[in-house]
């Protein structure tokens, strides 16, 4: 009886996943094995050529840059997000207000917010204008169009994805444990690193995964804040689908990236004994 109920209640989500997730993925997989037409499009013969082309060291360099920028952004998100999440979880009355404020940026489009950063960072932008009028600098600082601008944009964009899972685990920590630690003479740093951080580990891992994966595939931020000067994996895929009109190669590149992320997640899940997310 219950198995029947289970079957029918799960059916809609299964159908949705099948139609909106599995089917497009199969199409991408099929495209990646086809040959590019003379002027775009894709057609038989079937071939692994697109995958073979990915072995070019040029693309490995792009992948390593993406991994480095994504890792750096994730680390900064953790560094900024952990104290924030701890603070929110310990604030009694205003908890909901603070959480709302963390979510507030999602009320406008990511594209618009990224453009707003451009207006902050450019030569005649807010930051340079203020610094110049205070007499702190004479020439404007080159804040926009470099890798640091990309990292700033990614940290800004994905910080909420770090804060929310951290908050969820930190809030569940029993305050009695912290009291007990204090009673037994633990210093604050001991309490933090030997009680709070280990207990918050599932949230830390979840937050890092949620930030790292979209950073790895980012293409808008490197384009707008990086000025297209430091191509990341997302830009490579996007460029194949637009300028180069090479859909098979773009499909192969995006599937390879996805496979690598999934392998890394599987490895992480095994280390965490299946306790991931």
């Amino acid at each position: 009886m219950w198995t029947k109920v289970r079957f029918w209640t799960l059916a809609p989500s299964r159908l949705l996943m099948g139609l909106l997730f599995a089917a497009p993925l199969c199409i991408v997989a099929a495209y990646s094995l086809l040959t590019r037409g003379a002027y775009g499009g894709q057609s038989p013969p079937w071939t692994f050529e697109s995958y073979a082309r990915l072995l070019d060291p040029l693309y490995a360099a792009i992948l390593f840059r993406s991994l480095w920028i994504a890792a750096l952004s994730t680390a900064l998100c953790l560094l900024l997000g952990f104290p924030l999440a701890l603070f929110i979880s310990r604030s009694a009355k205003r908890k909901n207000l603070y959480l709302q404020l963390v979510m507030l940026p999602f009320w406008t489009s990511f594209l618009v917010r990224t453009y707003a950063w451009m207006f902050l960072l450019r030569d005649t932008g807010l930051i340079n204008t203020i610094l110049q009028s205070l007499g702190l600098i004479r020439e404007p600082l080159p804040l926009l169009y470099n890798e640091w601008a990309v990292v700033v944009g990614l940290v800004y964009g994905y910080l909420p994805f770090m804060v929310l899972p951290l908050f969820a685990t930190l809030e569940r920590i029993d305050p009695n444990l912290l009291e007990a630690a204090a009673d037994l003479g633990a210093r604050d740093t001991d309490t933090l690193f030997r009680i709070i951080v280990p207990l918050a580990m599932p949230g830390i891992v979840a937050g890092c995964v949620l930030v790292f994966i979209p950073c790895l595939g980012a293409y808008l931020t490197p384009d707008l804040l990086g000025g297209g000067k430091s191509m990341m994996a997302g830009n490579l895929v996007q460029n194949q689908f637009t300028n180069a009109r090479d859909w098979p190669f773009g499909s192969a590149a995006s599937l390879t990236l996805m496979a690598m992320v999934m392998l890394a997640l599987a490895w992480l899940a095994r280390r965490q004994k299946g306790d991931l997310l």
């Binding site: 040029l58 430091s230 830009n235 490579l236 180069a244 090479d246």
Partner: peptide
């Protein structure tokens, strides 16, 4: 396309 990828990366 390869040249463009080299230049931009």
């Amino acid at each position: 396309d390869r040249i463009w990828t080299i230049v931009k990366s």
